[in-house]
Design a protein around this nucleic acid. Structure first.
Lengths: 205, 205, 205, 205
DNA sequence: GATGAATGAGCATTCATTCAT
DNA sequence: TATGAATGAATGCTCATTCAT
């Protein structure tokens, strides 16, 4: 149904749960968490309103599940990319950024919802999702700090630069358009360069 | 009442209108446009629900008024800063970024609402606000393009770099905390440096 | 402004009162008493909402004034017509019907409101208006009863025939269209004939 | 609950829908469409306000359903009566009028609402109901035209006479009182006679 | 699991009316 | 007279959620 969500929500097992999650993603990304109704989700999932509650105990839990999956998957992809990138900070960062950009364009709806609807989460669910997000942020900070310490990055503000870098990458979900001027690969390469520049690398490619 | 909104909403004339706008800013920034109710706004403004409609014909119009003011004021400040910055692109950009950062920290709520609630605007109101936002973006693009053409900026992607720069600056409203490590001046200087780095200036200060 | 209301609401003295009454007539006839708002009336009258209450203490009183004028004027015209019609019931009835039809087409809005909005009157105002309406009805009944007693009308149900006659005439306000097939004179003549037929006159013209 | 609505709203299947329709009939006939609230209807139906919307998507749709049923049932009864009345126009008209009168007194609320609240219908719903009403009117016109052509009726204005006849019959709903002087049969017979007279039949019974 | 019906709370908006000026 | 601002109550309608089946 929505190729952009292929790997985020596994459609193989429990077809209904996947349909609900995907419908929620669509609804929340188009109307926002508070603007979308459980009826919207049910309609999109092709099931009844009350059946939603057999899978998710509340609307908030539905959002939490979505954000958890999105953040976990993003973190996972970045970690995998970094792990395979050798030990130079420059290479690790490039790998992270490219994986990040690809995730955002492949799962634009999920990225958008993760960016803009996290504020509607409260309590334990919020803590958990914020923690996942912070781990991603922390990963960037570590790489940047290491690169700054090792002389690869010249920026005098490694932590703040990392934060701004993540802001930049996350914001792609707000303006990217699939049919646009740049394809995902070009976009990834371009943002790798932006990242290097932001961190004041001497070695530009 | 809210020092962060000092100049955005003039409290001198039409006290009630200003109180309503400020209450709406507070409500929308804390709960989102759809999560905040007109009752919230009325309570915050110290007036009755129905009296709100003597000032704004609908909740959407209230949001539109807010976004219009925020975008217009931001654009105005940047234009003024640029106009007083000489003709080198580097100087103009630094002036723009510093004015931008100061606006965001001075009007954090307004900036946050302008960033995240614009999606709930429709029709003519949306067009108008989007146009104001695009003029700001266009101003950055012009400066960057001029600087790239004149050899001040080395970036091979002036337009996209400008877009990411604006993303970065706008996102400050999502994480800035008034009592934090950096005061507004330091933050402005820091982001001026980030901007120069992103555009690959040779001249770093 | 509205020629159909020329004599019902005297526009000479107290221009505002007349404007309000005419605006109310327009509003009530188009949207019904409950569907029209005092704001509608104010807008139509070209004055402020609150100023309405300097002339009429409540929306109900405004309706009452309207209905009183409409019923009084109708009764007055019919009485005048009957008084000038000689003493044969046939002639009196014809005069009454023709005056009645002319009133309805000249004051269609007022007639429509008098027919369909009287139900929203309560208390003393209702009593007074119902009394006026019943006097008109009574006049018809008297003429028909006299004509039946004198052999001019053959109907065996004078009172019920009179009621149905009035129903028929009042209903003209619900379907008459100024630019239609029949002009007021033709319509009056036609309904005079219908009335004679209904009462089973031997003398048909 | 309301014996006057016995056949109009079938209470056998879907008990709630019938209860809502009957409550709406009661509410609209007593307070008018705009004067009655959905809360009134819910109270009368013995259910919650929000549950109303599981049966009818809007107040207008509720009115439309009511008017559709009323007009369809009236038309149906008249058609059935006419079909069983032989081929003389006089007999057909008498049958139509008697069926009409019986419908009005049996379903006085529905008849009253159909007469006076049709103006609050808009769009497609209005078109549909107006069409049903016009078919009834057309049926009368056809009978009268045939009778006039065949010499049974002497009226020189068959179409207009038919219209006034329908006005007369519809208006019964505005003044009839169940415990009154005339029982339904007598009323039907009386109005059959009025109809014949109005059309200037030679043969009076 | 899955459904349709049900509900109480809440929503944006409009109302007739009042009041200070 | 005339007004703009104000209000409490009510409006039609939607919401997330529950429950009996």
């Amino acid at each position: 149904m929505n190729s952009r969500s292929s790997t985020l929500v596994p459609e193989t097992a429990r077809a209904n749960e996947a349909a609900i999650l995907n419908a929620a993603l669509e609804a929340f990304s188009q109307k926002g968490f508070n603007g979308a109704s459980m009826r919207d989700v049910a309609r999109g999932a092709g099931t009844s309103l009350s059946n939603l509650y057999n899978y998710f105990p509340s609307k908030s839990d539905l959002l939490a599940a979505l954000l958890r999956m999105a953040n976990d998957e993003l973190l996972n992809r970045i970690e995998t990319a970094v792990a395979g990138a050798g030990r130079r900070a420059t290479d690790q960062l490039r790998a992270a950024v490219e994986a990040h950009v690809r995730f955002v364009v492949e799962h634009q709806n999920a990225s958008l919802v993760a960016l803009s609807e996290i504020r509607y989460l409260t309590g334990a669910a919020r803590k958990r999702v914020v923690a996942a997000r912070d781990r991603t942020q922390g990963l960037y900070e570590e790489i940047v700090a290491a690169g700054a310490a090792g002389g690869e990055f010249g920026t005098p503000h490694p932590e703040d630069a990392a934060r701004n870098l993540v802001s930049m990458l996350s914001a792609i979900s707000t303006w990217y358009s699939p049919g646009g001027r740049l394809d995902p690969d070009a976009l990834a390469a371009q943002h790798a360069r932006f990242s290097m520049a932001l961190l004041e690398t001497n070695d530009r490619s």
